[in-house]
């Protein structure tokens, strides 16, 4: 009995060892947060699960709209029972129209916002969110077939969202500016000094390498600087929420809140890479 158990344990440890070697090899090669390593096999699964996410995301969006536009109104008009049927029909029409109006206004805002950016644009819908790290990674329903490539920039009417890190035929993964591994070179609107922005929580970012001598004010707007050749210059990113000068350091500790509300993202605009279009 004991010999059998020992044999079984040895077998288990052998298999654990094999899996461990594979993991150590992968970790050594790609690191703890492999943002760029994605295989064709990975993309195949993204293509398979993408339609399911699209349907669920659409269902959620419709359910939310329905709840906001329909049930609230039904509660208000309960008193008039004779007109219930007629009202319900009208409400349904209002719901449809208001949904269209909201969508129209969102898209209009997006178009107005992107007018100044001389790049081809693709409108996309967010279909899924990161299940672990809250808004650090998003998936959208546009991919290679629509011209999206790796490092394409993603924005909405409020400002910068992030960049594409992985792209399959019809879907793309975005690393948002809230990801603590994302680095965006930014500049301050008034002082024009530079820093590097990275995520620190689900609603705040920190700006590193800001000189102690720079006169940064709270609420000052930050924009992309255009350095690094990935993010175009002048896209709004957020506003400064705190500035702490370090006594024995050359740099300041600056925190900023992004303009984009990542919890309410629906449609986004992807700015296509110019080099890929040529």
């Amino acid at each position: 009995m004991k010999i059998h158990e020992e044999k079984s344990n040895k077998k288990l440890y052998l298999h654990i060892g094999l899996v461990l070697v594979l993991c150590v090899f992968h970790l050594g090669r790609f690191g703890v947060r492999p943002l760029t390593e994605k295989s064709w096999f990975y993309n195949l699964f993204v293509e398979i699960t993408g339609p399911m996410s699209s349907v669920m995301s659409l269902a959620r969006s419709n359910a939310t709209d329905f709840r906001q536009n329909y049930f609230d109104l039904v509660d208000v008009n309960k008193e008039n029972s004779d007109l219930n049927l007629e009202i319900a029909e009208l409400k349904q029409q209002i719901f449809e129209l208001s949904s269209l109006k909201q969508e129209n206004s969102r898209l209009k805002n997006l178009l107005n916002f992107t007018e100044g950016l001389a790049r081809q644009k693709v409108l996309a819908r967010v279909i899924s969110w990161d299940t672990t790290n809250r808004y650090e990674k998003l998936r959208i329903n546009k991919g290679l077939n629509q011209g999206v490539t790796k490092n394409s920039i993603v924005i909405n009417a409020h400002g910068l969202i992030g960049k594409v890190i992985n792209v399959s035929a019809n879907y793309s993964d975005i690393s948002t500016i809230l990801d603590f591994q994302s680095k965006v070179d930014v500049m301050f609107e008034v002082t024009r000094s530079h820093g590097v922005l990275e995520g620190i929580s689900d609603e705040l970012t920190s700006i590193k390498y800001v000189k102690n001598s720079d006169d940064i004010q709270i609420n000052e707007i930050i924009l992309t600087s255009g350095l690094g050749n990935i993010f175009p210059k002048g896209i709004k990113v957020g506003a400064i929420t705190s500035v702490v000068a370090q006594e024995h350091d050359l740099t300041k500790e600056v925190k900023a809140k992004p303009f984009v509300d990542f919890s309410r993202l629906e449609e986004v605009v992807v700015l296509l890479n110019e080099s890929d279009l040529e």
């Binding site: 790609f30 703890v32 943002l35 990975y42 699964f45 299940t131 990674k137």
Partner: peptide
Amino acid sequence: LHSLFSSLSWSLETMIGLFFIF
């Protein structure tokens, strides 16, 4: 499969899983 939906590394999480088997 989880790495399809999150930004975590599958290798790191698997290693934690192996640790938990022990």
